[in-house]
Amino acid sequence: MEKVDFIGNISTKQGFGEGLKIAGAHNPNVIALGSDITSSVGMDIFANAFPNRFYSLGIAEQNAVGIATGMALNGKIPIFSTYGVFAAMRTLDHIRISLCYNNVHVIIGGAHAGISVGPDGATHQALEDIAALRALPNITILSPCDATQTRLATIAAIEKLNGPVYIRFGREPMPNFTIDTQNFEIGKAQTLRQGNDICIIATGHLVWESILAAEELAKQGVSAMILNMHTIKPIDKNAIIEAAKQTGAIITAEEHQITGGLGSAVAEVIVKHHPTPMDFVGMPNSFGESGKALELMEKYGMNAQAIVQKALSIIKRK
């Protein structure tokens, strides 16, 4: 079991920026491409450390993806980051052909993921980015659970992979709880808690909500297992199948549309390998709106209470 402890609230974009800086110090081929909101995605940490390896490209995301491709084809490891809504979706065809079909090692940082973006409202809350990208061949999709893990995921994406990578992270300072920094491996889910009655498979910030939910469920006599699915693609099939066999009930939890996200990826495995009662915590086919992060998570059913409710009802179907 991994160590879990609450350290404090930190924004995951901070982890992204720190990861870039560390990987950039290791490797002079790491290059960052800014899309005007360099500091609000955490990239300023890299840009300040390595100004000659930072390119300002303005508000032109499609061009940034193409430029990253041309750089990667010449031995560099470019990182392009902007808000997830633009990073993943305005650029989608460019990611499909220039990045994925050419299978180049480019890291896309999708910032401001999820409803917890808050007051900016629907336009800037990335809730469809996983669905949009998950269908593309060759891409790896990472959705780390907190700032520390975002740092680890960023470094691993740069140092361990060779193809296109999308890393999703949030805006608001959120609980940082990863203590064990030795055990992060892309494609390998982490068991954060053992349990026998149900497994909560969560990603991103909702991993923390799952920990809170599991504690509440324990008070009600339900023993919940937690899997931190920090890699959405390729998904850790074995961990899902084992969890389904062990607990016989699955809840997925993500700050993303239920359609096409983590839940769908898990369901594809469950349906084929070990059909099990299952439910989904995520955005219910709706756009978001302005509000505080926690208010929105409650209104749209993406918090610990929502996980507890769905868990209790799914257990009855076992």
């Binding site: 010449n74 499909r96 050419n102």
Partner: peptide, 20 residues
């Protein structure tokens, strides 16, 4: 040098190469 065919992408890739 490039897999391509979706229009409007090649010039950006060429720029990435020229920058390098």
């Amino acid at each position: 040098e490039l897999s391509a065919g979706s229009l409007g992408q090649g010039l950006s890739v060429a720029i990435g190469m020229a920058l390098i």
